[in-house]
Design a protein around this nucleic acid. Structure first.
Lengths: 201, 201
DNA sequence: GTCTATATGCGGATAGAC
DNA sequence: GTCTATCCGCATATAGAC
């Protein structure tokens, strides 16, 4: 079994059981209390390990944050690219990317909070690595808007500004979403798909 | 000069110079690094005081957070109420509240980040106190939407959902705004006033 | 790969002089 | 109201046995 530290870019399925438990415990804690308010003892005990057990699988607490942030960004980007590619028109593409992105921020609100709000706690190197993924995400939205303007389906005053406002609606879902509420992630996705189209027509 | 601890609800102008400097230093630090990553020594030194100097003016680090959060929430609420009251129609009211709320989240992005993202770090009692202000803010937006639906100016499928999406656009400004960017807070306000209207018509 | 034990430093808050 | 000095607990991370 390869360790996280020796193969930082490998896929999820090569992680040991303990590493997976640590990442889940860290995701819960970072999302609930924030990176700095979370102790490595919290994470270790929730994963069923002693405090020292963390360092067999991850180089540091920040490394744990980085792995979560990177995987979260990659998942979000992959979903957006797939949704945009599968659509038959800019209108359907925008509806689809807003729906999947919003739904993802609800369903995976713990990782989404880490992605959106714990970014600043990465080291400079790790922040740089993740920044590339963030730019890819922005590009997907901007490209859909540009295509819709070209086809005449959309009326948009400023593409970058509108792309940012669309992303804001979806990103902010991670801030207010609570699994206790009645709205389902699917319903949130449908709603935001429609609201996104209103913003461009 | 009355201390902060003996009169927690008094207005800003009765604060001593040192208390004001402490709140400014705390606002900078909390917004830049988050509540838990900020040390009382950071705050004190940036305010020109020794570590012990903080406790003459505030009961604890959390008390400092609470004062900032409460004043920020009150300022935001007062602005929204004034903007909604001054407007001659639901259409103008919505444009105005979206403009002032977005502009505020840019201009005062440090306090806005504390208001929106450090909420969870308040004690249960303080969180409860601020929750009332948050509900007032939500009500302003919902009332404008309800009035616009009644007058026929707006076509809204679901008032609470749409109110939340509108607030999300403005709130998220505090996350991405950076004083280095070229967009001015005023321009952001104008843009979001227009985008808000698109969402309801 | 997991443990117990611990090194080491830092952080919130207080004591008490001035 | 501000300081210096300090208490006390906690947090990250490591050492070294098994």
């Amino acid at each position: 079994m390869l360790s996280t530290m020796s193969t930082p870019g490998r896929s999820v399925e090569t992680l040991s059981d303990a590493a997976v438990r640590l990442m889940e415990a860290a995701a819960d804690a970072f999302a609930a209390k924030g990176f700095h308010a979370t102790t490595t003892r919290d994470i270790a005990s929730h994963a069923g390990l002693s405090p020292a057990g963390v360092y067999v699988h991850f180089a540091s607490k920040e490394d744990l944050l980085f792995q979560l942030s990177r995987e979260g960004h990659e998942a979000a980007r992959d979903m957006l690219v797939a949704a945009a590619s599968a659509a038959g028109s800019p209108t359907e593409a925008l509806r689809s990317i807003m729906a999947v992105f919003s739904q993802w921020h609800a369903e995976h609100f713990r990782v989404a909070r880490i992605v959106q709000y714990e970014f600043q706690n990465l080291t400079a190197e790790h922040r740089e690595a993740v920044l590339g993924l963030r730019k890819e995400i922005d590009s997907v939205v901007r490209d859909v808007l540009t295509a819709g303007v070209a086809s005449g389906e959309f009326t948009v005053t400023d593409v970058p500004d509108t792309a940012l406002a669309l992303l804001s609606m979806a990103v902010d879902v991670a801030r207010w979403y609570d699994p206790e509420i009645k709205r389902t992630p699917e319903a949130i996705g449908r709603t935001y798909g429609e609201l996104g189209l209103r913003l461009v027509t």
